[in-house]
């Protein structure tokens, strides 16, 4: 991220003049002489131990060597695979129009479509921000690489494409539950493999987990009434 250090601008001065008349202040931050900031003397840096152990004071050298966990190869692979995984969910929702005749399944499919698209954007952004390669464009096509948990094969997709009405709804729900549960399994695998330790990766993985869990629950309820 590139952050600017900008001086107070003409527009800000104009705003300040207007604002002064009504008791509102506008000021540029650090370089302004008004209410300001003492450079605080560096306080002590302490790292506690486990309960019962003494805290340690860190030297400047130790402090400079501290870092937050970086993202791992497992994180990057998770993001890439999840993009691919989510894209297949969109293939399923694309089949709903013209096949489902109920009110609730198209509504659910719409919701899934929106959330998968938002998450795909999030996953891609995470990869871009870290200079990680994006997934190959056709990685979700059946026959590419190892099958991820919950991924559907050609037989499933053909069967769904051929179904209509109530039979379609039921199969759609069953397949989407299986597909989503696969995503949840992938989250669990991520943590099992030592991933999700970088704060941002942890956050993304948790959101994927929460969203799929909520949708699975909703789909189970819908399936139970059919």
């Amino acid at each position: 991220m590139q952050l600017s250090r900008r001086a107070i601008g003409v527009s800000a001065l104009a705003a300040a003049l207007i604002a002064a008349a009504v008791g509102i202040s506008v000021a540029a931050g650090r370089d302004d002489s008004a209410p300001t900031t003492a450079a605080s003397p560096p306080g002590r840096v302490v790292q506690p131990g486990a309960p019962g152990q003494d805290s340690r004071t860190l030297s400047p050298d130790e402090l400079s060597r501290l870092s937050a966990p970086p993202h791992s190869a497992a994180d990057a692979e998770f993001m890439r695979r999840m993009v691919t995984h989510h894209l297949q969910a969109l293939e399923l929702t694309a089949l709903v129009g013209g096949r489902s005749t109920s009110a609730d399944v198209p509504q659910l499919a719409k919701r899934i479509e929106v959330s998968q698209n938002e998450e795909i954007a999030q996953l891609r952004q995470w990869l871009v921000d870290r200079g990680e390669p994006l997934p190959e464009p056709h990685a979700n096509h059946v026959g590419h690489g190892d099958l991820m948990p919950g991924m559907l094969d050609a037989t499933d997709l053909t069967a769904l494409a051929a179904a209509k009405g109530a039979a379609f709804d039921k199969l759609f729900l069953e397949l989407m539950i299986r597909h989503h549960e696969g995503a949840i399994t992938m989250v669990q695998q991520l943590y099992r493999d030592g991933g999700g330790v970088e704060s941002a990766a942890d956050r993304v993985a948790r959101e994927v987990n929460a969203d799929q869990s909520i949708e699975v629950r909703r789909m189970r309820d819908m399936l139970a009434t059919r």
Binding site: L3, R6, S25, P35, T37, A38, P42, V45, L63
Partner: peptide, 26 residues
């Protein structure tokens, strides 16, 4: 308001910023 990490412009009404301390090393 102009942006920036530690030099963004500020606006206030009926409250004044008295002081600011940057996040310390670590």
């Amino acid at each position: 308001l102009g942006g920036g990490w530690l030099d963004a412009e500020e606006a206030a009404s009926n409250i004044e910023r008295l002081a600011h301390v940057d996040k310390p090393a670590g």
